[in-house]
């Protein structure tokens, strides 16, 4: 069971409180009614499904109820960072990516806070 840092509650909470909500940063196109079939396909059907860092949406459904975004490594399951909906996609440093990869050493700051910080009550 993962610990997930909710950027609204500012606490790491157990996965049981959250629901996954698919890939992040796929904005509904403006003027969607008029977009081409190809643009609709790209928006609605095509997903990256990356092996490595994924940007994904979560909802703290049994907590504050807010949707937020996260960068997670899909092999190690390590979170790099979580951030509020509407904030820009963060630029991850090579160090951050390497740390999140399998065999990486560091634990992300906000996930570690959950172990030794607020959530660890």
């Amino acid at each position: 069971m993962l610990l997930i840092h909710c950027p609204y509650c500012e606490e790491a909470r157990p996965e049981l409180e959250f629901r996954h909500a698919g890939e992040a940063h796929i904005a509904r196109p403006a003027g969607i009614a008029e977009i081409s079939d190809e643009a609709f396909e790209a928006y609605f059907f095509i997903r990256d499904n990356t092996k490595g860092i994924v940007f994904e949406r979560w909802r703290h459904i049994h907590g504050c109820g807010r949707f937020f975004n996260a960068a997670r490594h899909s092999v190690s399951d390590r979170f790099v960072v979580t951030y509020r909906a509407g904030e820009p996609k963060p630029e991850l440093s090579g160090e951050q990516v390497a740390a999140a990869a399998p065999g990486g050493k560091a634990t992300p700051a906000n996930a570690a806070a959950g172990v030794n910080g607020k959530a660890a009550r």
Partner: peptide, 13 residues
């Protein structure tokens, strides 16, 4: 409600 909240929070905030 989940569907409504999703659009309200992320697409139509």
């Amino acid at each position: 409600l989940h569907h409504m909240e999703d659009y309200l929070q992320t697409e139509f905030p």
